[in-house]
């Protein structure tokens, strides 16, 4: 993915550099860009250390587990199949909790093991089940209580009040996550039966042929 992005950016740059007559600046721009990556890393380094450390303390003190319990009633409604069977529901709740706390490196493995467990329950192993889609879509609308990277970047480029951004981020991310969950629930109920039936029908048909 990154290779493609890099390639596209380079081709577009050289094309526009020639078209706009800015080729002379391209060379220095490459050097400045590479140096600014070091500045950016330095700006992020301290906060990333501190925040990962603090989140690890919360994690080991059981914060993810406590949040998991708190969220069960809500998640039960949006992941009906997983909670009905009890398979994968723990991982789903822990994934949402880890995302909320901002423990990104814990959230992804949890989501992947939840996917694995949901796949065990999936009657159509090539087609995504509704709970799988809900989990994936929910993870794409990142809901985290403290957007530490954004705040750090704002602060490092000289913002006086980098924390002002927290409330707008909360409002937006909760609205988007709620919208994602509700749409997933609605679409999941509307399309589920038909998909499984047509799949069953197809497999019956191929079985009959054989």
């Amino acid at each position: 993915m990154l290779g493609k992005i890099f390639g596209i950016i380079c081709i577009v740059s050289v094309f526009f550099g020639i078209a706009c007559g800015n080729t002379g600046q391209l060379g220095s721009a490459v050097i400045d860009g590479a140096s600014s990556a070091v500045t950016l890393t330095l700006a992020l380094l301290g906060m990333m250390c501190l925040w990962s450390g603090i989140l690890n303390v919360l994690k080991e003190a059981g914060a993810i587990k406590k949040l998991t319990v708190l969220m069960t009633p809500i998640l039960k409604f949006f992941f009906p199949d997983a909670y009905k069977s009890g398979v994968g529901s723990e991982e789903i709740a822990a994934n949402v909790a880890a995302n909320l706390l901002g423990v990104g490196n814990a959230a992804t493995p949890l989501a992947l093991s939840a996917m694995k467990k949901l796949q065990l329950q999936n009657p159509t192993p090539e087609i995504a089940s509704r709970d799988m889609i809900t989990l994936a879509v929910l993870n794409t609308s990142s809901v985290s209580l403290i957007p530490s990277t954004v705040i750090t970047l704002l602060r490092s480029s000289g913002s006086e009040n980098p924390f002002d951004i927290i409330i707008p981020i909360w409002i937006t991310s909760f609205t988007c996550a709620a919208m994602a969950l509700i749409l997933c629930r609605a679409l999941g109920s509307a399309t589920r039966v038909r998909t499984i039936r047509s799949k069953d029908y197809k497999s019956l048909k191929t079985q009959a042929r054989q």
């Binding site: 740059s13 094309f15 526009f16 078209a19 721009a29 490459v30 860009g33």
Partner: peptide
């Protein structure tokens, strides 16, 4: 994580900086 990201960021920021300088 932060240090491991550096090589990626070097490549990307060099490309982005070039993109901005080109007028695109």
């Amino acid at each position: 994580t932060a240090v491991g990201l550096l090589p990626t960021l070097v490549a990307l920021l060099a490309a982005i900086s070039m993109l901005r300088a080109s007028g695109a």
